[in-house]
Design a protein around this nucleic acid. Structure first.
Length: 292
DNA sequence: CCCAAGTCCTGGTTGC
DNA sequence: TGCAACCAGGACTTGG
């Protein structure tokens, strides 16, 4: 079985988008071995020198691909627990293509890393990390995942946390609830778009100070975090690579938005106009009518 | 020119 | 007053 061509991108990568990439990547590269590593943009490296990437990765086989929040982790075989950790930043894309297709194998203007992978049967695949804005990051670490991952809270979608955890973390804080959701140390994986959508579903105003949420509201928030991300994963899981628009969002995503980017339009729940404010330095859409 | 985004960094503020 | 925790805002980057 040859490695399947895979083009994984999905607009701004938040948890559901990264989960989609993770699934496609796992399918495409698990059990393949690194052969040649090319770091075109070494400035995107963390915890790692270009030299280490070039010398330590070749010969190692990918045994597992997983995700924590917005981070992708590729675990290698061998004793040293070598991990390649990827963050897609804002505009990162992963492309995996079998070699032999001239068109598929070419560097683009935004190609930042290229990994040549080899399979048991001797065929090769090209694993490319593209990133227009270079906010993406690549870590190669021995003895476990990148140190950065230790600062992350539990995975917002499938992590081990509950209403009690949220309540404890929110207590006494004056920062707006939206800023709390964006802080990866609390929960990992929520970005600007899903934060707005979660707060709309939970009927909570994004400016509400964390500490003012009632137990009932925290329970609502906890439920909507799981449900909104679940829906995102399900929808993007249906987004076959070929359907993904080069420009950004996969089909069906934009029309599902209830708050983010809908300023000036009617709230589909109460009819009030969605407004836009800046919170935590980020554009925020919400309904002043029903989000309290 | 300004805007968007995720994360890192800095410096100022709050409250015990 | 001291100090840690907290919080706001700028830097980074590029294309629309």
């Amino acid at each position: 079985m040859r490695p399947k061509a895979c083009r994984a991108e999905a607009g701004i990568p938040e948890l559901p988008e990264v989960e989609t990439v993770k699934r496609q990547l796992a399918e495409a590269v698990t059990h393949l071995r690194f052969a040649v590593v090319e770091a075109i943009e070494p400035a995107m490296l963390r915890d790692t020198t270009e030299e280490q990437l070039r010398t330590e990765l070749p010969g190692r086989t990918i045994v597992h691909v997983c995700r924590l929040g917005k981070f992708l982790l590729l675990k290698m075989d061998g004793q040293r627990h070598l991990h390649l950790t990827l963050h897609l930043g804002m505009t990162g894309q992963i492309l995996v293509t079998p070699y032999g297709k001239v068109q598929a194998g070419a560097d683009g203007p935004h190609t930042r890393f290229v990994f040549k992978l080899v399979k048991d049967d001797g065929t090769f695949a090209r694993f490319e990390f593209r990133d227009i804005r270079k906010f993406g990051r690549v870590h190669l670490t021995g003895n476990g995942p990148a140190p950065k991952l230790r600062d992350l809270g539990p995975d917002a979608w499938i992590g081990d946390w509950d209403t009690r955890y949220l309540k404890d973390r929110l207590r006494g804080r004056r920062a707006p609830i939206k800023a709390f959701l964006l802080d990866q140390r609390n929960l990992a994986g929520i970005g600007n778009i899903y934060a707005d959508e979660i707060l709309w579903w939970a009927e909570l105003a994004p400016l509400r100070p964390c500490g003012t949420l009632t137990v009932e509201e925290v329970a609502r928030l906890a439920a909507e975090i799981r449900l909104t991300l679940e829906e995102g994963v399900r929808r993007l899981g249906c987004t076959v690579a070929d359907f993904v628009d080069i420009e950004g969002r996969p089909g069906g995503f934009q029309e599902r938005l209830r708050a983010y980017g809908r300023q000036g339009q009617d709230c589909v729940r109460c009819g009030e106009k969605i407004i836009r404010v800046i919170i935590a330095g980020r554009g925020t859409g919400y309904c002043p009518g029903c989000q309290r």
